[in-house]
Design a protein around this nucleic acid. Structure first.
Lengths: 333, 333
DNA sequence: AAAAGCATTTAAACCGCTTGCATTTTTTTG
DNA sequence: CAAAAAAATGCAAGCGGTTTAAATGCTTTT
């Protein structure tokens, strides 16, 4: 009927030692005589004892679990980061509680709170908007937090990203160099700093450098999805753009297909560079030129940084920028 | 310095009631006088008290957390299921601990054990191979388990799937109807029941019905990845196939692109039907014809089933088959 | 007004493990 | 060989809740 769990107490009794000793051998504490350790280990094995992590968590105030807030696991960009996060988490004996937020501020706060209630040792947050309310929650809790692939303009909270300004500047400049003068900039909401501040800045910078006037009509704000990309093609075309820099791969492949289905030949008639270099770029035809970013590593590094913070180690640089690059594949001349 | 946590005890003191009463109001127990409830609620609000889920878990033996073992979050098929799982989990106030297994038996067991140590209330397992050792772990623990998008030939453990035999039969028959006689069947390892038993059976069934001899040379075993698909095209072509039924969307898009890059026109010269109807099917060009399966729902239903099991409700049918269909898009005539 | 019957509350025993401190055992040392 | 030092081990107090049995209040009944 009941789960007939065997506890540390059972082991102690069977091995005729105290719970304290059993606890020590379980935790690899060196203050145990080898003979005793062996005896205890045998009993543990015989009884098939497994420490209850919840009890352990209560007593030690550590759960070896971190919370991961992700907009949508189904988006390849985020799931790539998540994979990096999970792998290094595993490496450091942590588990991750994964929660989708849909970038909904309300949900984010809600989720963050339940994660904190569950006493996670740290949290990794993905989401492009660090609203005041979520920041308030962050600071209120003493739990370490790091952003992965998400910027905090204030640089208050630790984060791992690439230099979006430079990256988009370079991507845009590439397009300029290929002779384009009307380059569309299509991405997610400009109210998200990553778009409205960083990427847009890079875009403008490249234009200024090329002495091309900035035209707001070439800036397209939409959501990160394939459908949105397909849908926005008409407007991009109508605006007279001959090329586009795009902030998300799903969005980009949508736009690419939208153009293709419209009879436009890429890259001859239209060039395009996307931003994330996820595996989608290789799946598209033509393959998409892209800013390259180490997605997996962004997640991995973020998690590594978090382990340091949870470990109260001194961290010299809270705001990490990983290297990016540009690969030209089939969507640029 | 310390996290200065405020506990139920603090609330009790401030509200001059016992912890038990505070516990009752927190848990919505009706046996509390409205006036008392109000008073306690005020103190909770004033002190900004949040129940410690770990302590609660220890005392109540419920963690409202379920473990989710997934081969790879980065694979759109699995992440789609995961999304369904998480949404329903959230709906029922559960959180999910997500762990990647890479379909590695060793890792799966390892992960399952740490999940059980963390006292998850249930687990959802994705992975195409239910080895004896993992099944042993399953039965050893009294924790409810359900498989999502993964079959257990023995039907010992609860699961949610579509009818792979029928689905592949229908897909293959469609290809037959279009006049193909040499139809390749390309999928993951045949040692996985879902492929070796179910899908293969459907494939053979369709051939038999059409009086086409089964030719082992038209069966391709590979891994579920884009690269694998691209790579296997040459062999499929060499085998003289004029069409293919494929067990995974990433694999399918790889094969599709492999063919296209080789100058083969799909669907005129080669037809293809894939299996999962993930968003990749719409991203490919031509768009891929596919067996349709309610990916999100498979996850959602699996989680729903798990909630029932965790709740010790009687479950009439442990082996759920959701409806599937066939959509013909651009890769079939 | 005392006895009953309910509705509320409280006291206190866990839940299973960690950990500081005390105690015991073993090893060194003079 | 006794004393001091070091190494092992045990005790018991938490960790922050849940939950049951018992106690307390009030209202109702007779």
């Amino acid at each position: 009927m009941d789960k007939q769990t065997i506890t540390i107490y059972d082991v102690a009794r069977e091995a005729s030692v105290s719970m304290a000793t059993v606890s020590r051998v379980v935790n690899g504490n060196p203050n145990v005589k080898p003979a005793t350790r062996k005896k205890v280990l045998e009993v543990i094995d015989r009884l098939d004892y497994r420490p209850n992590a919840v009890a352990r968590g209560l007593a030690s105030k550590k759960t070896t679990t971190v919370g991961v807030i992700i907009p949508d696991v189904t988006n390849i960009y985020f799931s790539s980061l998540a994979r990096g996060i999970d792998d290094v988490a595993t490496m450091y004996k942590y588990n991750i509680i994964l929660a989708n937020s849909d970038e909904n501020g309300q949900k984010e706060i809600q989720v963050l709170n339940t994660l904190l209630a569950k006493q996670v040792d740290g949290v990794i947050f993905m989401g492009n908007q660090i609203t005041e309310s979520i920041r308030a929650e962050f600071t209120r809790s003493k739990t370490p937090i790091v952003l992965a692939g998400s910027v905090d303009p204030n640089e208050q909270v630790a984060s791992v990203n690439i230099d979006y300004v430079e990256a988009i500047d370079e991507a845009t400049s590439t397009l300029v160099r290929h002779g384009n003068e009307k380059i569309a900039f299509v991405t997610g909401s400009l109210s998200e700093p990553i778009n409205g501040q960083y990427r847009l800045k890079g875009y403008k910078k490249a234009l200024a450098q090329a002495k091309i006037a900035y035209d707001p009509n070439l800036v397209f704000e939409t959501e990160y999805s394939y459908k949105a990309g397909e849908a926005i093609w008409d407007r991009v075309k109508a605006a007279g753009a001959t090329a586009a820099v795009i902030g998300d791969d799903e969005l980009a492949i949508g736009l690419l297909n939208g153009a293709g289905d419209d009879g436009v030949v890429v890259p001859d008639d239209f060039e395009l560079i996307t931003s994330n270099d996820s595996k989608l770029t290789e799946m598209a035809r033509p393959k998409m030129s892209s800013i390259t970013q180490p997605l997996y590593d962004i997640g991995a590094v973020a998690m590594r940084l978090l382990t340091k913070m949870m470990n109260k180690e001194e961290v010299d640089n809270q705001t990490i920028l990983l290297p990016y690059g540009i690969v030209e594949r089939g969507t640029t001349k």
